[in-house]
């Protein structure tokens, strides 16, 4: 189909982007792979687009001092190909859309859109990522677990934009993994689970676990984490810990659709949490 009319401004810097957006009450356009399809279906009519896709310095991955910084305009393809990021990131990025989508879709655009079925919110929540956000008053950092606040909702105001996401860099004692139940049509996540485990031998010394897809937004799973902490991990203890995800999910919040009922999704939560944990443990 065909998008409605809009005015188009191209920003050369973050400051210019913020100013243009405020001046014209527009919407930011990065890769456009979330926005353009809904505009074509005429489900979105922003009137003004501020293209941030060419801003210098927002594209690329840099690692230093135990953390890696992913620029907001970094594409999923770049994340998929990166060798200095925790395993969960290339793994999950490789399952977003398809190669063409990954060549255009950006990390910043993806998380700003905050689609509940998207993979990166779950992944960043498990990684305890820090989302760098720029606004008129300057920059701030939001913890991933506080960033995704609801269905297509984030902790950002309309006047703010994502500039980067900071994640722990790859480390030998920490294993990370993502497990995903695919929607057979769209290939988005019906349920996605992320895990980051630090191990000493078979013992789990730190655990961060997240779940998404079935809820309006991705969440941390403190009950699962508590059940993992200090445990010697084996098939049984992992399954037991994963089962605790039921305590982290508010049943009434679980969404259902033609592909997967709420009940089915709820049953799948421990299954995919278990798979993420097992894979992460094997990598630690």
């Amino acid at each position: 189909m065909y998008p409605p009319k809009f005015d188009y401004y191209r920003a050369g810097s973050v400051e210019e982007a913020l100013a243009l957006r405020k001046q014209h009450d527009g919407k930011f356009l990065a890769g456009g792979h979330s926005l353009i399809p809904v505009m074509k279906l005429r489900l979105s009519d922003p009137g003004v687009l501020v293209d941030i896709g060419r801003i210098d310095g927002l594209k690329g991955i840099s690692a230093a001092n135990g953390s890696a910084k992913i620029g907001a305009l970094t594409t999923h393809a770049m994340v998929e190909a990166a060798d200095n990021l925790p395993d969960i990131l290339p793994e999950a990025a490789g399952w977003i859309g398809d190669p063409m989508v990954r060549n255009r879709g950006t990390v910043g655009g993806n998380i700003a859109h905050a689609d509940p079925a998207s993979d990166l919110p779950t992944v960043f929540t498990a990684l305890q990522a820090k989302i760098h956000v720029a606004g008129e008053g300057g920059s701030r950092v939001v913890e991933a677990s506080n960033f995704f606040t609801g269905l297509f909702e984030t902790a950002m105001s309309d006047d703010e934009m994502v500039t980067a996401v900071e994640v722990p860099s790859k480390d030998n004692h920490t294993g990370t993994a993502y497990a995903k139940l695919f929607n057979p049509a769209s290939r988005y996540a019906i349920v996605g689970a992320g895990a980051m485990l630090t191990m000493q031998g078979n013992q789990c010394t730190a655990a961060s676990v997240s779940i998404g897809g079935l809820l309006p937004n991705a969440i941390r799973c403190p009950s699962v984490e508590a059940a993992l902490f200090g445990q010697t991990l084996n098939e049984e203890t992992i399954a037991a810990a994963a089962a605790a995800v039921a305590n982290d999910i508010v049943a009434d919040d679980v969404m259902g659709d033609i592909h997967a009922s709420a009940e089915y999704r709820q049953r799948m939560a421990p299954v995919f949490v278990k798979r993420a944990i097992a894979a992460a443990a094997a990598r630690a």
Binding site: Y8, R10, L29, G32, H33, I36, P37, K40, D51, G53, A77, P99, M100, V101, N103, R104
Partner: peptide, 13 residues
């Protein structure tokens, strides 16, 4: 030099 879906790119991009 990258494959893209030209239905989801604006000509101005």
């Amino acid at each position: 030099s990258q494959s893209v879906k030209s239905c989801t790119v604006l000509a101005v991009q």
